[in-house]
């Protein structure tokens, strides 16, 4: 009957028509992302963790090497100079996962999500824009941080003559692998946050998946397929991609990245289904 609304004598108010666009949604999410103090602080914390821990551990390693006794042991064991300076990235996964969760679950806890979806009722556009802003922000900041950590760490290790350089085989790929891991974990946080809608619950879930489950999987006997499960597990899949040398106990660089990307895609997809289908 509404098509004849005008015929029935109801005039339509003729104001300006502001159409929603994906570019507009991205700008909106960009403003939202950087206008909440907790997110800004957390993003800065991830940079501090990557650079600070990386340089600190490289400094510790250099100190150990400088001592003839401990240094000899370490050299004999063989160590990875690049990995030493990237230790902070592991810690930062915890932080960026929380950012991913906060940007969506925070909307549910505050009720903002109703405003967001009333402005863009398709819902998935908001979600996609959130994912894009999150991925780009984490990628850019963590790329800078990983590079700084590497350069700072290697400068310290160079004093002992063991520093790696960007030109070395696999170094740039390992740095990129760490950035990919951080972006993926942040997006996984977004997916789980959209699914669970609860900040604490979603952060705990993602952290358990990254830090607790891999330890538990160590206990699964091989006869139950323990090794395969361990290799294919979410955070374990990028072990080779984030290191200079392929890790023999884990998936190779390319298959590992593919498996990791599949995990992230599935989590984001589940989050999308939940957002699209459930009442808010």
């Amino acid at each position: 009957m509404s098509a004849d609304a005008k015929v029935a004598g109801f005039p339509q108010y003729a104001g300006t028509r502001y159409r929603v666009t994906f570019g507009g949604l991205v700008r909106s999410e960009w403003i939202k992302f950087w206008s909440v103090r907790s997110v800004v602080v957390t993003m800065v914390a991830s940079v501090v963790a990557i650079v600070g821990l990386g340089v600190l551990i490289a400094w510790g390693t250099a100190t150990t090497l400088a001592d003839p006794e401990t240094g000899a042991v370490m050299t004999a064991q063989g160590f990875d100079a690049t990995a030493a300076s990237l230790q902070g990235a592991q810690m930062a996964t915890l932080i960026v996962a929380a950012v991913g969760v906060i940007v969506i679950a925070g909307e549910f806890s505050t009720g903002m999500v109703r405003t967001s979806f009333a402005a863009a009722p398709g819902r998935l556009g908001v979600y996609a824009a959130k994912a894009l802003v999150l991925a780009v922000s984490v990628a850019v900041l963590s790329a800078v941080a990983v590079l700084l950590a590497f350069l700072g760490g290697q400068a310290l290790l160079d004093r002992e003559g063991v520093g790696a350089s960007l030109g070395d085989d696999g170094v740039v790929r390992a740095l990129a692998g760490n950035v990919a891991m951080l972006v993926g974990v942040a997006l996984a946080g977004l997916g789980v946050g959209a699914l669970l809608r609860n900040t604490a619950g979603a952060i705990s879930t993602v952290l358990a998946a990254i830090f607790v489950v891999p330890l538990l999987l160590m206990l699964v006997p091989e006869s139950w397929g323990g090794d395969t499960i361990r290799e294919y597990w979410f955070s374990n899949a990028v072990m080779s991609a984030t290191a200079v040398a392929e890790q023999p106990d884990y998936l190779g660089v390319v298959p590992g990245l593919a498996v990791f990307a599949a995990w992230v895609a599935v989590l984001l997809g589940l989050g999308a289904l939940s957002l699209k289908s459930r009442d808010v």
């Binding site: 909106s28 403003i31 907790s38 925070g106 505050t110």
Partner: peptide, 21 residues
Amino acid sequence: KAVHTGRSARKHLQAMAATAG
């Protein structure tokens, strides 16, 4: 309550406005 408590009123409105230019 349909507003993020951590965001200023102006940023809240700017973010909403941005969706549709």
